[in-house]
Design a binder for these strands. Sequence first.
DNA 1: AATGAATGAGCATTCATTCAT
DNA 2: AATGAATGAATGCTCATTCAT
Lengths: 207, 207, 207, 207
Amino acid sequence: MARTTDKEAKRKQIIEAALKVFARKGLSNFKMAEIAEEAVVGKGTLYEYFRTKEELIMGSISQFMMEFEEYVMAQIVAVDGPVEKIERIVQASCEYCLKNEEQLDAMLDFYAVGIPRSGGGPALMDLAPRYRSVIQWVGDVIQEGIDKGLFRKVDPESVASIVVAVLDGFIFQAAIGVLKMDPQKLSASLRDTIVNGLLKETEQGRI
Amino acid sequence: MARTTDKEAKRKQIIEAALKVFARKGLSNFKMAEIAEEAVVGKGTLYEYFRTKEELIMGSISQFMMEFEEYVMAQIVAVDGPVEKIERIVQASCEYCLKNEEQLDAMLDFYAVGIPRSGGGPALMDLAPRYRSVIQWVGDVIQEGIDKGLFRKVDPESVASIVVAVLDGFIFQAAIGVLKMDPQKLSASLRDTIVNGLLKETEQGRI
Amino acid sequence: MARTTDKEAKRKQIIEAALKVFARKGLSNFKMAEIAEEAVVGKGTLYEYFRTKEELIMGSISQFMMEFEEYVMAQIVAVDGPVEKIERIVQASCEYCLKNEEQLDAMLDFYAVGIPRSGGGPALMDLAPRYRSVIQWVGDVIQEGIDKGLFRKVDPESVASIVVAVLDGFIFQAAIGVLKMDPQKLSASLRDTIVNGLLKETEQGRI
Amino acid sequence: MARTTDKEAKRKQIIEAALKVFARKGLSNFKMAEIAEEAVVGKGTLYEYFRTKEELIMGSISQFMMEFEEYVMAQIVAVDGPVEKIERIVQASCEYCLKNEEQLDAMLDFYAVGIPRSGGGPALMDLAPRYRSVIQWVGDVIQEGIDKGLFRKVDPESVASIVVAVLDGFIFQAAIGVLKMDPQKLSASLRDTIVNGLLKETEQGRI
DNA sequence: AATGAATGAGCATTCATTCAT
DNA sequence: AATGAATGAATGCTCATTCAT
């Protein structure tokens, strides 16, 4: 059991180092040696935990994405009401980005890794399923709003797409430095713009 | 007299080949030799037009971005009315992506290139100014809507940020394959969700 | 623990191989791959010990020059008397060239490397200090001869310049094949021509 | 006839440019393009006059050596007396180096070109015959001195070797910057050191 | 298990040379 | 005859990966 824990801990340690290096150098410029140095292990050790560079990249990104998702989900479970849920998902996403400001620089790279190439093999990592599930989840919230008579009868999936798109767009704008990742301001702004537009006339101004 | 050449034309030819290769292989995996082959020129020729691989990348992306911008701008000049302008910018953006579906795969890479790295030099290409000007432009449209009494008194810049963010987010979703780039549908969807939310109560349903 | 290596020994091994290749191909025609092959190491290994080709060249030449100097110095320490010292330095220099006959071919290249270029950076290697110290040393011997009343009152430095010049000239003549590097003959010849001319009339024929 | 003159003139023009570039960059670092630029002709033109880079190098060095020799010879023809001849050859050599101070930087390279390589082809240029003839000529002068009863009965060829060696050594010392090419001083110095040593005792102090 | 010295496939880049104009 | 755009063979150097210790 101790063995497993040790192994797992060192793997985490390497991934943490990797994410730092990704942020600093970008996914296409970092070297395995840099990660080894950052993780304070030998180059050879990396290969005890990841078979190839590619696997280390995928492993690290997966880990990051998973923690992102977990964080957001954890912030949401206790929230009631569709409007609040959407507000909270925006806030939580921004919060996570802020807490991992360093990673922000690398997130676009993470996204790019998910692009399938027409020529050559498939995407290094298939982001689509994860993406669909997020959109699905947001769509359910929208549907919930409609069902509760709060929202107009919009197409839940389309709106969900938009909400998720805004979040990604914010991340990009923050990464290039034209937007400040302010959870309160951005969630308020999104609420005022999108959620308001979703509310039925009779509901507007009430919430 | 020596062999005469239209330098500008050959430069374009190389850039076109480069963009194709970028889409196929991604910005971090392509080889100069591939571009030479695609452009049907010798490897050495590439270096007659671009001093380094990096410069070729930047030149090609710049060209792409510029053409993107030009296309969208051209589609917009003749449009009147804030709502129509926003609708049209979404449509035009989608159209250009559709016309260059091949490039779509590479666009996330293009974005990633614009991320400044905390460690090491600056971003390969500074997208911020271009971005700010687009947001500014959309913001002006929003302001126009407010001035005309069409829109509620929102913060123009925040809304502009959101609109632009949605466009980028759409591009990403299309790239990973969870969204279809349908100009009509997406612009209608955006209009129904965002623009509606911007309209004053008295205006809703009229436009 | 990792594969352990005597870094210093391997460095020597590479330098030895390099000097062989220099002699065979000349400083401007050799390829790194040739040195790797001669040293029976991988190309990459060369770069573990020398950052660039230039550094490998400089390191190897430095080493050669140093060993040359050490050899000559070692042959001289025990020698008494100015005339004998000069004779011995000539002999020792020739001996070293003979023992390293292979290198002889490359020595002119080594010299050329020390030439500072008016345009562009400084010389790859500054031979001037080392040169001045040798001339200084020979000058001291001449001075000693004058002080002891053996030599005429000549300018020690000028004569030292000449002696050193002759040695270099010999190396060149040997390299192009118009002179045989015969320590006995050359030192005798130099003694008969130069040293004799330095002796006071009263001393001539005595020594 | 005009044709020939033009051709010959342009050839000279190229060689002159080449020598300048050699001095600036060294024989192993210059590029054909640099020579074309310096000569203010197109790259292609170089190949109208020299089949290859190597041929251009050889042609230029030959030209330089020939002019060197011609200059020295011209300065010597009218000189009488072995001592004066030797003094004059030293002076003339220094003078030429001074007049072509720029080339001085490249002369070691020229020498190096004459070194035959054990492995690979022969020397790019065989300096031996030219060298032997110079040594021969100096040897004849020494012999003349002996015959006239001025010099001791030394081995003419050995002494000639030394004299020529000194000249080359001076050039090297001047190139690396430890010696000033002063015709008067150097010839006087050489005369005082070598020639004096050659004089018979009865002649010393007379000349 | 951990390491880092060794490796060589792989790639950006250079530059002598060609040849259409 | 003169040119310089085009070319690709050649080469320095990198870095993921291996493996002896």
